[in-house]
């Protein structure tokens, strides 16, 4: 049974990656999961300088999901490289550093620094963050800014470059094409869906940040639809995420066109979610007589020729 997939220059032994921000720096879950069994580890989002993040409360449970407004708290690229990366190097698993900035210069600075470090195999850009130079408008919602920031990062790194797309846009296929044109090796989607929850007794927002990102099973149909739209629009691999809790969910994303998947909120519910999902994918392959996982990519059958 062959579960290996390729994302840019990265050879993954299986298509199951961790979703940024849900697996810490890897060490938090090493007690529960043999990290060498994973397709890849995607780190907590990193910025050039450490970030404190948002005031609490930062999370709230919602129907079949949760809202978070962590505020991109992280220890910064330098401390990550010094304190966290050596631990990950013990494992036979590609490390993908997720990073972001609030200006193009910060994106470029972080990408340069991460690319110089030994032990980082790929980069994932989070463009779902606000752009200081453009009145805090989110990078990933403007095609021109997306092209500019991805091109700028592409110029300074030879590592496999993944662009993580925001679902909070009108046309995600367009954003994916822009990322591809700017030199991305792959796109990953979806990031969280912006949402909000109110305590009706106090009339206060349930998150100190008022709005937050919705994740979990509640958003899976949105993710599957967007992966399908993007798969039809670009030639580069698509990494699917959003509410994947089981091997079946992962297969659903792959049928929609995902070459690999990222597991996020499921880690909070079940610390062994990633390896459980790998087992679930194997079970599906065995049950359906599938020898090579890459053969199911985009295997959706549908009738409407006009779509």
């Amino acid at each position: 049974m062959n579960l290996s997939v390729k994302i840019g220059d990265l050879a993954l032994k299986n298509p199951v990656m961790t979703a940024s921000g849900t697996f810490g720096y890897g060490e938090e879950y090493a007690e529960f999961v043999d990290l060498s069994l994973l397709g890849a580890i995607v780190t907590k989002g990193l910025s050039l300088k450490p970030r404190e993040g948002n005031p609490p409360p930062r999370i709230v449970e919602t129907p079949a999901g949760m809202l978070n407004a962590i505020g991109l708290q992280n220890i910064g690229v330098e401390r990550f490289i010094e304190e966290k990366l050596p631990f990950l190097e013990q494992f036979d698993v590609p490390v993908i550093a997720n990073f972001f900035g609030d200006s193009i210069d910060e994106f470029v600075g972080a990408a340069e620094r991460l690319s110089r470090a030994d032990g980082i195999d790929g980069l994932e850009m989070n463009i779902s963050c606000p752009n200081k130079q453009a009145g805090w408008l989110v990078f990933g919602t403007d095609p021109e800014v997306t092209f500019e920031v991805v091109s700028a990062v592409r110029r300074v790194t030879d590592l496999t470059l993944i662009v993580k797309l925001s679902p909070n846009v009108t046309d995600i296929a367009q954003m994916a094409r822009v990322a591809e044109d700017a030199g991305a090796d792959a796109v990953s989607l979806i990031n969280t869906v912006t949402g909000m929850a109110i305590d009706i007794n106090t009339r206060r927002p349930k998150l100190a940040n008022v709005t937050g990102g919705l994740s979990g099973p509640a958003i899976k149909p949105i993710g599957v639809r967007m992966v399908w739209e993007v798969f039809k629009a670009v030639g580069i691999p698509v990494i699917g995420s959003g509410g994947i809790m089981s091997g079946e969910d992962a297969v659903e994303y792959m049928l929609a066109g995902a070459a690999a998947v990222a597991v996020g909120t499921a880690n909070f519910v079940t610390p062994t979610a990633t390896t459980d999902i790998i087992t679930g994918i194997r079970d599906y392959m065995a049950a359906h007589g599938i020898g090579d996982i890459s053969t199911i990519k985009g295997g959706l059958l549908w009738e409407r020729e006009d779509l």
Binding site: G21, T22, F23, G24, E28, Y29, E31, F32, K44, G53, R58, I59, M66, N68, I70, Q73, T265, N267, F268, P271
Partner: peptide
């Protein structure tokens, strides 16, 4: 959420 220090929630 996670209980193990990962989510920073």
């Amino acid at each position: 959420a996670c209980g193990v220090g990962a989510c920073l929630g």
